[in-house]
Amino acid sequence: MIELRNINKTFKVARRNAGFGEALKALFRKEYTYIHALKDVTFTIGDGEMVGYIGPNGAGKSSTIKIMSGILNPDSGECIINGLTPWKNRKEHVRNIGVVFGQRSQLWWDVPVIDSFELIRDIYKVDEAVYRRNLDELVEMLDLAEIMRTPARQLSLGQRMRCEIAASLLHDPKILFLDEPTIGLDAVSKIAVRNFIRRINNERKTTVILTTHDMQDIEALTERILLIGKGRILLDGSLSELKKRNSEYRTITLEYSCGEFEEIHGITKQSQINGHAVFSVDTNIITVSDAIAHLSKNADITDISVVGASAEEMVVSLYEEFKI
C-alpha cells in the first residue's frame, strides 16, 4: 500500500547568466530561483496494482519516484509505503522495493551478469533457497540462460534491460518502480519486457509503478493512469475512462484515386498528400457514416479506415487541455 498525502517539494536553483563576468559575479553572490517541483501531490496505490505515471519532462515524475524510493525527502507532506516512511527508514524500506532506472545500469560492467546477481544477493541478504528459486524463474521468464556468463558491457541494450529487471527482482520486492524501462529498445525487446512486466504483476502480485513516454507501454500494461504536470497531479483514472473522454473523435484515413474533398462542420482535414488523406471527425456533430458519405461524394475512394483516439493522441490532448 502506497500513500502520499500533500507532498510538497521545492528546489533552489542557482541562476546565472552567460559570460565570464557573470560567472565571476556568481562566485560572490548567487541568485536563486525556486522551482516548485511537487505541489500537494496526493494519491494512493493499492497492493498488486499496475499504475502508469505519466507527464512531460520536468513535470515532477522523477522527484516523486525519488521520494517514494527514499532518495529524497519532501519539504512537507506524508508518504507511507507498507507502513514505512521511505526517507526515514531507508534501509528497511528499500528491502521491499525494486528500482529500475532505464538509463543507468546496476550491473557491474566488466564481470559476467551472474557475478553481479550474486553480489546483489549478498547486498540484500537474500536467502539462498529463495535466491535459487527466483533466479531460475527469472532466467526462464526473461530468457537469460545464454547471457548469464557474458560481461554486462558486451550485452545489447535489450539484453541488458532484461538483466536489469531481473536484478531488481532477485530479492522479492513487493513494489517495483520502473523508470522508462523500454527506452531505446527495439520492437522485439519492448514486447518481451512488457510481457514480462504483465506476468510478474499477475503471478507475483507485485505492485508496479511505471513511468514512461512510450504510450504503447501504457496501453499494453496499465489500467490506471496518474498524470502529473507542473508538479500537480492533474488526473487519476483508468485508461478506459480516459478513452471515453476522447471517444467523440474518430480518425478517418482514406486512399483515393481522384477527386476533391470539402471540409464541413465536424470534419477537419489533417493531411492530404498523393492520394492519401486523413480527417478527424467529431461524432457529436456528425456521425461516422454521414462523414463517410460526405467524403465519398466527390471522390473515388479505394481504401478507408476508421480508428478511435490512440493513447498517444489522448495524452497530447490531455497535455493541451491542462496546458502543460
Binding site: 524510493s69 532518495i71 531507508r90 534501509k91 528499500v94 538509463q103 543507468r104 546496476q106 540484500y124
Partner: peptide, 13 residues
C-alpha cells in the same frame, strides 16, 4: 552519473 541514487536504494549504509 547518478550511481549514488542506486546506492541509496540498496539496504546498506
Amino acid at each position: 552519473n547518478g550511481e549514488f541514487d542506486r546506492m541509496m536504494v540498496r539496504p546498506r549504509s
